[in-house]
Computed example of a mutant assay.
Amino acid sequence: MKMIFPIFFAFSLLVSHSCANILFDYCVGDLSLPSGPAGYSCKDPTTVTVNDFVSSNLRVPGNTANIFKFGATTALVNQFPGINGMGISMLRSDMDVGGVVPIHTHRVSELIIVVEGTILAGFIDTNNTAFYKTLNKGDVMILPPILLHFQVNVGSTPSVVYATFPSENPGVQVLSAALFQSSLPSEIVEKITLLDHAQVKKLKKVFGGIN
């Protein structure tokens, strides 16, 4: 009995602390103002409507007319103000046959579910171990935060994948774009990638980089 009271007391403090942090029902983002580390400022509650809590973005297929045969549509906070402060967002990924989601990283973890088609998805950890598997319709995979990850359509039909993130704005950095679409001088890219000058210049031209 002596042990139960301290445990109950600690649990009560935890619950009361969690409840004390919920000061508002919601904080719909005011997209007319700049965002900061804490997200957007709250919209005037008297102007909030149900439409702030609804997004139809993911109905629209991503544009796959590009070098990767891949396109994405997103429901992030800057398009979906109702998720401001909620710590969640979603994305739709479309790939044509042979298409790829190029290797990239986010600030947070990612949970994907295959809605149509067959893909190969995976990530590489900090020990340079690759974890990858062929996924079919209905399969779910978790991709840890920060780590480089990718998807490839290995099926005979276009694929559709939905992803969810524990953040309203998970951020994304595509490795190839970071190297070849940026203003980083070609000489530096050559040194840090071991690619030759001609290859770097070719890729800079493809991705629209300078220097």
Rank of each mutant, 00 (worst) to 15 (best):
L111R: 14
Y132E: 15
A72T: 11
D94S: 12
G117H: 04
N153E: 05
V140I: 15
M86W: 00
G122E: 07
A130D: 11
T157E: 13
L148E: 10
M90Q: 07
A75C: 07
G98A: 11
H149W: 02
D94P: 01
I124Y: 00
Q79K: 07
N128G: 00
F150R: 09
L143V: 08
G138H: 07
G117K: 07
M141C: 06
E116P: 00
V101N: 11
I88W: 01
V140Y: 06
T118A: 02
M141A: 14
I103Q: 13
V154E: 03
S156R: 05
V108D: 08
F150T: 09
N128K: 09
V108N: 09
V114A: 05
V115A: 13
R92N: 05
I142G: 10
I112G: 03
I67Q: 15
I83A: 02
P81C: 03
P102R: 11
N128S: 11
G122R: 05
N136I: 11
D125V: 06
Q79D: 08
V97E: 08
V108H: 08
V152T: 12
F68T: 15
N127T: 12
V115P: 00
N136C: 08
S156V: 10
L148S: 13
R107Y: 04
F80R: 04
M95R: 08
N66D: 11
H149M: 02
N128W: 01
K69S: 14
T129K: 12
V152A: 12
F68M: 13
V108C: 07
G87H: 01
A121G: 11
N84H: 02
M90V: 05
F80C: 04
A121K: 06
T129E: 09
T129L: 02
A65Q: 15
I119N: 04
G98T: 13
F131D: 09
T129V: 14
T105A: 13
I146G: 04
I88V: 15
G122C: 06
G98K: 12
R107D: 14
R92D: 04
I88Q: 01
G82R: 02
S89I: 06
G155K: 03
V140E: 08
K137W: 01
M86P: 00
A65T: 15
V114W: 03
T73D: 06
L91V: 12
N84I: 05
F131K: 11
I119F: 01
S93Y: 01
P145W: 04
I146K: 15
K137Y: 03
G122Q: 07
N153Y: 02
S109A: 14
M90P: 00
G155S: 04
V115D: 12
R107N: 13
R92Q: 10
I113S: 08
V101L: 10
V152W: 03
Y132A: 13
F70L: 10
G98W: 10
L143E: 09
D94W: 03
V77Y: 01
I103M: 15
I103G: 11
L147D: 09
F150W: 04
